[in-house]
Write a protein that binds this DNA or RNA. Structure first.
Lengths: 214, 214
DNA sequence: GAGTTCGGCTAATGACCATTAGCCATCAGA
DNA sequence: TCTGATGGCTAATGGTCATTAGCCGAACTC
């Protein structure tokens, strides 16, 4: 499900219908559809969103979407797989940047929070629509999800083994940290009491307190 | 989906004996339907659950459900309104039992966790299906939800004012505490690593650590 | 033991929906 | 200018669903 295959090589510069109110290169169209689908899935839910809704959001009729997308399900699958891949990639980067477990946990949590604040719609849909994914994709997402959780659990276990953390249950510590981050996607909005950076920092603190790192 | 029914010929010998293995008083029937709906909504989502599914789960046909229930939506609304009312009632009881803010927070969190562990399906559905509630009920649930969140926020603000807690943002502290509890509903299962009581106690600790009560 | 109620059932009804078919205008490139 | 691809569009197609209508047997009432 890769991300776009844009036009394979940008050979054709399009630029047709110049300067209309909106530019519609093939890639623009596709990502416009994806964005519209994401917003609608987040707002109304996958099952309640119709192809007609998505089409209307980008100014075309429902059936015309099939000139750009294989199915409604594909739109959902791309969102969810992309979300998990990004979360895992961010986590790998966060952990890889230092050798100190405390700092690894802090950076992991900050990345987790940043993602959930900056990509709230993706995270929100990613958490709510798992049951609407079809078999091949659902397993893939669930498996990524387990990997992601395991990375946190093992990090905390390692910290505990090294004496940096002290937890009664690494499982509970990791779930509580992950879950409070997931919650961010449902209430955060830019321009509120805190900026994304402040939020990330404060949740980093909270996580370290949860594992008794202080 | 065939349940055993003799249909067709019209002269079904049914044998719906009252004194069989399953008792079917009107109240039993109704709560059986509610429970079936709850399970199905939790597992498949509200939109993906059909009246036929719910009927099959209690051994009758979809349309027969209307002899007991006004609509599919009513089933969802009852679950969600009941959930919020119980959470608020539990919270009032928790706070009312003592005058010490620390203890009030601990008891509140324990009640929150207990509910999310013991009534995971209700809590799970209650958090996922808000968007599928229709206007009158949706507003009611959203308003209860705000009240519930406010109770936590104000409790934490009061604790901070009294010097018992120390938080950078009462809003973030309350959301993180509530969200980690909500998460419990998605992974907890009886017979796992922790009992409900252990879970409640540990989350109580975590909450007190989040507000720097130690 | 006749009438009433209860709670099943089957068959509509009336929508709604994802997806496919097939048509056509535009346009880039030859 | 011709041609093929692109990306719209309208009309099916084939399903699914909540809900309603109307029928009927069994149990309960008096």
């Amino acid at each position: 499900m890769g991300v776009v295959h844009d036009g394979q090589d940008g050979r054709y510069e399009r630029a047709h219908r110049p300067a209309r109110s909106e530019e519609k290169s093939p890639a623009d169209r596709r990502s416009g559809i994806r964005l519209a689908a994401l917003r609608l899935f987040a707002e109304q839910g996958y099952r309640s969103t119709t192809m007609t809704d998505i089409g209307a959001a980008v100014g075309i009729r429902g059936p015309s979407l099939y000139k750009h997308v294989a199915s409604k399900h594909e739109l959902l699958a791309e969102i969810m797989i992309g979300t998990m891949e990004q979360l895992i990639a961010d986590n790998i980067a966060a952990v890889g940047g230092t050798d100190d477990v405390r700092e690894q946990l802090r950076r992991s949590v900050e990345a987790h929070i940043r993602y959930h604040a900056r990509h709230r719609l993706e995270a929100f849909v990613g958490n709510r629509e798992i049951g609407n994914l079809e078999p091949p994709d659902q397993e893939r997402v669930l498996s990524s999800r387990s990997d992601y959780e395991r990375r946190y659990r093992e990090l905390i276990e390692r910290g505990a083994a090294e004496g940096a953390f002290e937890v009664r249950s690494a499982r509970i510590a990791s779930y509580s940290i992950l879950d409070m981050g997931i919650g961010v996607a449902s209430w955060f909005h830019e321009g509120g009491e805190s900026s994304v950076d402040q939020l990330a920092y404060q949740y980093g603190d909270i996580a370290l307190r949860i594992v008794n790192a202080y």
